[in-house]
Every structure is written in C-alpha cells, then in structure tokens.
Design a protein around this nucleic acid. Structure first.
Lengths: 238, 238
DNA sequence: ACGGTTATTTGACCTGAATCAAATTAATAC
DNA sequence: GTATTAATTTGATTCAGGTCAAATAACCGT
C-alpha cells in the first residue's frame, strides 16, 4: 500500500473516530470503515444529493454544514435539519428503498465522507456491534423528527423562537447574558424555524422591544435567559 | 416445555412471521424472538406508553390499531402515525436514550406483542441479518416522518385531504369509483391531517360540492380519482 | 469610496384556518 | 320507542402569519 493511501486512510479514520456514531470503535474497525469511504468536497451551495437520487451510502461531515430539506412543489424549502461537523446523516440509505427522501445542500464550503452502502453493509453483517450503533443513530434522528413535527404544528413563531433561544442558553434560569453567533443568514434560520425572514425579523423585533434580547448583525444576545424561559413556559404552560 | 407454552409460542411466531419486519426469517430465529416477546391486550383508549416512559422494547401489532402521538402543552394531540395489524413501531426503544419520544394509545381493542429490549439486543448481537432488518424498518419510519413534515408545513388542508384521498385510490388516473371506509371517527382523521374536525368537515363539503366525492356516514366515495388527482396536481403543480 | 448585489427590516394587506357557539345528526343506553 | 350523550356540520368571528412592495442596511468586487 502506498504511503499516500495510508495517509488518506489516516485522515479518514481520524474523522470517523470523532463522529458520535463511531467513537470508541477499535482501530481495526475504523480502518475497515475507512476502506469503504470516499471523501467529497462541496462548494457552498452545492448539492450533495437530491430527493429520489439512488442512495449510494450515508454521510459523515468532516468540516462545514449541510442542510437537509424538502423542496415543495411551490418551490419553498422546508428544512429538516442542519448537520454540522461530526454529524452523520442519510443512514436511511442503508435500507431497501434506494432513493434519498430529501435534498441535501452545503451551506458553506464543506468536506464530507461518503460511507458507501455496499461496503458498509458487508461490514455490518460481520459486526453486529456496529449495526447497533447505526440503529442508535437512526433512532436519534427519529427523535429529532418527532420533535420537529411538534414544533412545526403546535407552536406559534414566537414560541418556536423562544424555544430555539432558550435551548442555546447554558442555564435558562440565570440572568447572565448569553451571546449567540449566527452561523447562517437569517433567512435560513427562519426556514429552520418554519417561517419566512419577514416574520422572523418581526419576532426578533418584538423580543427586542421586550428587552429580552439584543441584536447586532449576526450576534444575538439573550439579555435575560430567565425572562425568556418564563415567556416560553407561559406560552406553553397554560 | 409445557404444551401451553408451546401453543403460546406458536401463536406469537405466527404473528411475527406476518410482520413485514420479520417475514422470511428462519423458524428458529422466529422462535428466538418469540422467546423474548410478551403479549399485551389493550382496551380501546388504553395507553400503551407515555412520552418519557422507560422504553422496555418495541411493539408489533397483532390485532387492532395504535395511535402514536405527541400531546402538546396546550393539550392538543398531534398524530404522528396510526399503526395497524402487522406494523411494528417504537424501534427507537432499542437505542440508548431510554424514554419513548411520544405517546401511544389503542384506537380500538387491540393485541400487541412487546419485543423486549434486553432480549432482542442479545439476539441482534448474534444476528446481523436481523439488525439490518431493524435498520430498514426504522429507515422507513424516518421516511414517513420526513413526508409528514412536508405534509404538515407546506400544504393547506384542501391539498392534504386531496393527497390523502388520492393515496387511497388504486389508480389515480382512472374514473372508477373508489370506496373508502373510515376506520376511525372523523376527529381522529382530522388530527392525522393536522387540522380540526370543523375544518375537515368544511373541506369534505367543498369536495362534495365539486362532485369529487360523496360522503355517507363513514364511507367516502371518490367519484373521480382522475379529477381529484388533477386538483392535487394543480394545487402543488404551479 | 462607489456601484451593484444581497440581506434585512418595515409597512400594508389578505387569507386560511382555528375558535367559539349553536344546530343537526348519529349512536347508545334504558 | 325515548332519553342522553357523542359526533358532525354549519355559521360567525378573529388572528397569526404569509405575501407583496418598498425602504434600508450590509456586503463585495474593483
């Protein structure tokens, strides 16, 4: 085996190890997985796959961010989830129906690993432990989706935003300022919250009026996690 | 082993065999699974589990129907899916976080099999083939959920109902009448479609006015699948 | 700094659908 | 049957939030 190939494998195993799905696996297993993995570079805005594409495997993000979404017939984009470094997604590829159920597009320049379906399936047959991990990973995606469904139907935008903000506060009870750096533009974030930029903007403005947050460019500052948390409770509570 | 126990195992393996998840498995495997399975009877309206309950395993429906849903803080029920005879659900139980992510309640008198977590995990470690099946099953649930998210956010009630109806027409292009028997009351169906009974009723009325369907008690008749399909296309299309 | 493009904000307007209330129509018990 | 209760329908009202339009503000290449 050439030194170059070894180097590549080394880089891949390093990424795999840092991925939730594979942490703690013995080096030999990682090497085996690396052997069925290829690296892909994505420009910002580039599509990784489209809905219905034949699924060639699942992905692990080495660097960057990928937006998994559906495009509706009216052209609107419904964000399912934004995955970031270390996340794995599209494990759904391993199952029988061969098409991906959604679109995936890089939100920034990214590097991802494609764990190829055929290869990993062979491995899974020999490594039940690995299969259990995949089960775990998929189940956590299921949980996220179940949560999404609730988020999208039940709550109004104000509550969804409050929820989103509170989730990002280390301690929602405290009065300590929390700075949140937006990693995407506000239109994408609005889409994640199931709304449009105009409404998102208005809701931010409302919160600003209530002295709950301060907004400066891409930096949101939660002025009072406790108050925000109280608002959230009130909106849900009774 | 007593004859009674053998009989019970026989009944269980029969149900397991008829479940998508396990069809085609060798008898010995089925017996092994049956050994870690217990039967549960549910009265109509009885809860199988609540959100957050420690997950003791996943379920296969032997007879009846189970409504998996979330209850929101405001008391409303968001249906995630209605499972029926032969379906398996709550495979999410096998993964690490121990709580179920939703509620499950019998819509009618039902009998379900609980495939116990500890037992099946042991089996999975020896049977990668089985693990792959579970992966497939979970991935199909993921697909359903991804579809749901689109359904719930994107379309208006008219489109959702048209979609629901068209899905139940063997051939959406044809003009042949299609009779659909409702298995639940209309309030539950409305909830599945992400709306309330009033709006559901109005939408049915609108379709009746358009001569697209006829309604008689719990029987819906699609008068012209082709026309309905055209309406759906139009609502989505452009 | 300057022109051009894109992102964000604000305003005005409108619609789908939830809610509340009331009338009808099943369904079930007695 | 008749009384009760639950399910469904219809009417009237209200409002969150999406859409369109226009004004700023931020960003980028030169």
């Amino acid at each position: 085996m050439s030194t170059l190939a070894e180097l590549k494998t080394f880089a891949i195993t390093n990424t795999l190890r840092s991925c939730q799905l594979f942490t703690g696996l013995p080096p030999q297993d990682l090497a085996n997985i690396a052997a069925v993995t290829v690296v892909k570079s994505l420009e910002k805005g580039e599509y990784l796959f489209h809905e219905g594409d034949v699924a060639s495997g699942f992905y692990v993000i080495q660097r960057g961010a990928v937006n998994v979404h559906r495009v509706t017939a009216t052209g609107k984009e419904q964000v399912i989830h934004v995955f970031r470094t270390g996340d794995s997604f599209a494990e759904v590829a391993l199952a029988a129906p061969t098409g991906y159920p959604a679109d995936a597009r890089a939100l920034e320049n990214s590097q991802v690993l494609l764990v190829q379906k055929d290869g990993i399936l062979t491995l899974l047959k020999r490594q039940p432990e690995l299969a259990l991990r995949m089960l775990g990973s998929m189940s956590s995606h299921l949980r996220v989706l179940v949560g999404q469904i609730e988020d999208l139907t039940v709550k109004d935008v104000e509550t969804r935003l409050a929820n989103w903000l509170v989730k990002r506060c280390p301690n929602p009870q405290s009065e300590a300022l929390v700075k949140i750096e937006l990693t995407t533009n506000k239109r994408v974030l609005a889409a994640e919250l199931g709304t449009v930029s105009e409404t998102f903007s208005r809701t931010l403005a409302k919160f600003r009026g209530l002295k709950l947050i301060a907004v400066k460019g891409k930096t949101l500052t939660v002025l009072s996690p406790a108050k925000l948390h109280a608002l959230l409770k009130r909106n849900l509570g009774e």
